[in-house]
Each structure stands twice: as C-alpha cells, then as structure tokens.
Design a protein around this nucleic acid. Structure first.
Length: 492
RNA sequence: CGGGAUGUAGCGUAGCCCGGUUAUCGCGCCUGGUUUGGGACCAGGAGGUCGCAAGUUCGAAUCUUGCCAUCCCGACCA
C-alpha cells in the first residue's frame, strides 16, 4: 500500500519524518527550513495551546502581542542576548520591490527603498518587550507585569527538521517583570512547574526538571531552568525552558521603578517558552511502527467510529445507532468522527486511524447491533474487545483516561530504565555508545570539562536536576572532586 | 557551510552507465458496477515542463556545469 512506514529499527530519522508527513501533521513547504502545519497537526497544536493558555491564566498571566520586527539598535541593547542570537537572525533591509526593467514580469528589490535601520525578525522578543516595558513601569505599584505572547519566531538554523528545528516556529513566550529578585525566581520556578505539569499530564511525556549549566544557559539569562525528556532512540530533548534574567534586560533598557522608599531600582525579569517542538517530543516519546500515538487529553480526535456495512439496507440501521453514540460522546465532551466515507473499506480506515494515532476506535456492524455491542480498539495496546452498547460513552470516557495513564507510565518506565550511573570514564563512554539515554555522573563543575566531554562524546549536560541528591564523588573526566551527579545525554 | 547519497505523475518506482519514435510499472485519483469484520475486485479513463537553469549535440530523463530541495555524517543548535 501507499502508506508504508519506515520502522524505528530500520531508520529512526526516516520513521520520524514518515510519521509527520504520512500522519498529516505537517509537510515541507516551498520555503527552505519552513514547514506547513496541516489541519491535523494544527488541531493538535491548538489543543496544546488552549490548555497551556488556560494554565497561564490560572497563574495570573495575560496575553499581549508585540511586533515581529525588532529595530537592530534595540536588538543589540542586551549584549549577550544579541550575541547569542546574531548568527541566526533574518534581517529586513528594504521595504519595497519594483519591476525589473531588464526582465519583464520579474521583480527586484528597489535599491532606493533601503531602510534607514535594519529590522531584525524576532528570534525571541526580550528586546522589543523590554523596550516597551520601560514605558509601562514607573512605580512598584506597576509590578509585577505578567505577560505572555503567542507568536511565531524565526531562527535561521543551518539544518532543520520538521517540528524539532524549523526556521520559523510557533511558540509562546512569557515575559514578566518583578520588584524583587526573590519574586522573579519564584516566577521562574512556577512556570517551570506549569510546563512540567502540562507535558506530563497532558502530553504524557515524563520530564526531568533541572537547571542548565552556564554553557547551556539562554543568552542573557542568570539561570536557565529546563524540562528534559527522553526519546525512544535514547536521545534527550529539551522540552521547555524558564529563565531567570536577573536585571540584565532592565539595565540594558533602563527599566527602573520607584520603590516604597521612593528609591529607584532596576526591575527583575523572567522569560519562559515552549514551542511546536513539543510536537516532536510527543511523536518520539510515544509512537510506534504503526504510526502516531496521541495522548487522549490533547488528541486532535479522541474517538473514530467505523461502520461495517453489509448491503445498502444496513446503512440506515448503523447510521442511526451511531448517531445516538455520537450524541452521548459529545455530551461528555469527547471529540468524535464518524467515518462513513465510501471511498475506503474498513481495513483501510483501521490502518489510517492507527497511523494518525486516534486513541479509541469503535467498529460497528449489523452483527454487533444484533448483540447490542461494538468492537472497541485502543491505539496504545492495539487490544480489541467487544463492549456492550449500554453505557458505552461512559466506558469510553474511562478508557480514554486509562490510555492517557498507560502511555505516560510506559514512557516513564522507559525513561527510568534509561537513566544510568557511570563512575568511570570508560563506563561513561560505554553507556553512551551502547545504551544511550541519560547518564548520571559526577562533573567538576567547569565549562572546560563540559566542552571536552562534548567534544569527545557528543554528550552534553542536559541539566542539574532540581533537588539533586548531594554526594561526594570525582569527575569522570578530570577526577576532581564533585558534590553531585549531573545528567548527560546526546540531545536533539 | 564541508563530505556522502538522492531527486522521473499525488506516492513509490523502471529507464540513465552505453543519448535515438509515443518515458515503465504499482498504488492512489475519476466514471460505472460489484463490495465492505484488518490496507477489496472488474471494466474504462485522466494525470509528466523527467527537481530548476544553462551548455554540448541533428537529437538530452540519459552527457557537462551551476543552482535548489530532501536524507545521512560533521560543524551549528536559547
């Protein structure tokens, strides 16, 4: 058939691409490094976005929108941030095209329409936002500012991959301003918790919360907190970050406020973001050789119903029975599609919805109606069974929750099996090469050692886990003393 | 951006080395019919600037050069 998938064992990267494209989440576009998110993929993103948005609002945040363009002079204000992103910025230099006098029907950039100042297309919005905050903040009474923005950003990456790293991607970025350092740190940690809760409870992907080493820190941050997930091929994926920015941006943009004592102070900042990259994490954490596996709580479609017709006269009977089920499911807030299209037979539909990862499939034919049952198939285990039609909607509601829990537990077990301790250099290298996954090891705390390890093994320090156990040990590379283990892995 | 591979209809492909009438086959698509419990069958039909652009040649899918895109390995990757 036309929708053959590459197996994970045969070629993991190809399997991933197959799932994205054949599962109709996204497609390549005419623009280098940019993808088209197709309706099925966008529905998934909408569900993720809606849930996150709700959680942001529950924690006191409001949405706003800032410009796509950042004047270069603003962009360069915070030096480290500017430096960190400089080499992947798209830049607008002109504002007009004109017809090419030498080539009919073609357009050229009008050399007379050069901008006085170049506009950087935001790779992240700290600069434009902090420039704006300057005019919003005078007094401690104006604080905190708890703003989030849903937006697209552009980072001109050399090598792109669908969802995991595209030149343009969708994300949210929270930018908050606080009167005290303590409050900003609490905010940073709070949003990391929100991310972890979302990714684990809704996407069913277990994560490790931690802090990045200075080498891996966000450009312009004092501390970068992150959640790290493990993919089925043993590589780690950074699923979200929350940054404590200190007063760096306040100083760069001169954002000060008068405190209760009528003294000027610089504002404390945080920023935090997750992107469509999470979709990549979702795919690689759960899916199998038959296709995607969507966690019920954010699945674009939770239930699909496939009729098994036998002769024209069976159609109205089945359609009628299905209509009552759809009504019951919708009443319980469950999304459902009745696929009674005539251009594919049941077997084809079964395979198709498995590929798309729909959590629950209902098959119903005359035989079932006679026995007052349906055939229920769950995507996570591919188990099929006959279930009574009575109370079916409630049964499915429970089953969706069970599937959600099951795929989380499955991913959690895999993740936990793939965190291993290494105490010597040989052990460390051997684990990375033979088992992949996270390797927990002692490190002397220096950036140089971290660089050397990266150079020799391609593994990076994913994070220093929060609430890390303190124990004396020696660095696996240098043998210098260490007080705690950190998590290494090869990463996306 | 460096090394390797690939690019022929919506998808997967044969042909390319060794240039020569109308570019092969399967799936999908359209029409009609029979069907429907794991990727249906019969009959008829539509669909191609052979990735793009130059060049060589009487003649280019085939040879040459450049460019573009994708994949793999590097470099890069808050």
């Amino acid at each position: 058939m036309s929708k053959e998938l590459t197996s994970r064992a045969a070629d993991y990267s190809q399997w991933y691409n197959d799932l994205v494209i054949k599962g109709e989440l996204a497609d390549y576009s005419a623009v280098r490094g940019c993808m088209v998110i197709k309706p099925y993929g966008y529905a998934l993103w909408e569900n993720m976005r809606d849930q996150l948005d709700k959680m942001f609002k529950e924690t006191g945040h409001v949405n706003a929108y800032f410009p796509l363009f950042v004047p270069k002079s603003l962009f360069e204000a915070e030096e480290k941030n500017a430096e960190g992103f400089a080499k992947e910025c798209a830049v607008v230099t002109h504002y007009r095209l004109k017809t090419d006098p030498n080539n009919k029907g073609k357009l050229i950039v009008d050399p007379e329409a050069k901008l006085e100042e170049e506009l950087v297309i935001r790779p992240t919005s700290e600069a434009i936002i902090w420039n704006t905050y300057k005019s919003w903040i005078q007094s401690y009474r104006d604080l905190p500012i708890l703003v989030n923005q849903w937006a697209n950003v552009v980072r001109w990456e050399m090598r792109t991959r669908l969802f995991l790293r595209t030149a343009e991607f969708l994300w949210q970025e929270g930018h908050t301003a606080h009167a005290t350092k303590e409050e900003a740190i609490i905010e940073t940690e709070k949003m990391l918790d929100v991310y972890a809760e979302f990714v684990e409870n809704f996407m069913a992907v277990p994560v490790i919360k931690g802090i990045k080493t200075p080498n891996e820190r966000f450009a312009g941050a004092e501390d970068t907190y992150c959640i790290e997930a493990l993919m089925q091929d043993g590589k780690a994926l950074q699923a979200g970050t929350s940054h404590f920015l200190g007063q760096n941006f306040a100083k760069a943009f001169d954002v000060q406020f008068l405190n209760k004592e009528n003294k000027k102070e610089f504002v404390w900042a945080t920023s935090w973001g997750v992107s469509t990259r999470l979709i990549g994490a979702l795919i690689m954490a759960h899916s199998d050789d038959q296709g995607l596996i969507m966690p019920p709580r954010i699945a674009p479609l939770q239930v699909v119903i496939v009729p098994i017709y036998k002769g024209e006269e069976s159609k109205p009977v089945i359609d009628d029975k299905v209509a009552s089920l759809i009504k019951d499911l919708k009443a319980l807030g469950i999304s459902v599609k009745y696929d009674n299209s005539d251009n594919a037979r049941p077997g084809w539909k079964f395979a198709e919805y498995e590929l798309k990862g729909v959590p629950v499939r209902v098959a119903m034919g005359l035989r079932d109606i006679e026995n007052n049952v349906v055939e229920l198939a769950r995507r996570d285990t591919k188990e099929k069974k006959s279930v009574s039609f009575d109370g079916l909607a409630g049964y499915i509601k429970d089953l969706l929750e069970e599937i959600q829990e099951n795929i989380f537990q499955r991913a959690l077990a895999f993740r936990n099996e793939n965190i291993r301790e290494a105490n010597t250099w040989d052990e460390f290298v051997n684990l990375l090469d033979t088992k992949a996954g996270f390797v927990s090891a002692h490190w002397d705390g220096t950036g140089e050692t971290e660089d050397k390890i990266k150079e020799q093994t391609k593994a990076t320090i994913r994070c220093i886990p929060l609430n890390n156990k303190q124990e004396a040990g020696t660095c696996i590379l240098t043998g210098k003393p260490s007080t705690q283990r950190v998590l290494f892995a090869r990463a996306y």
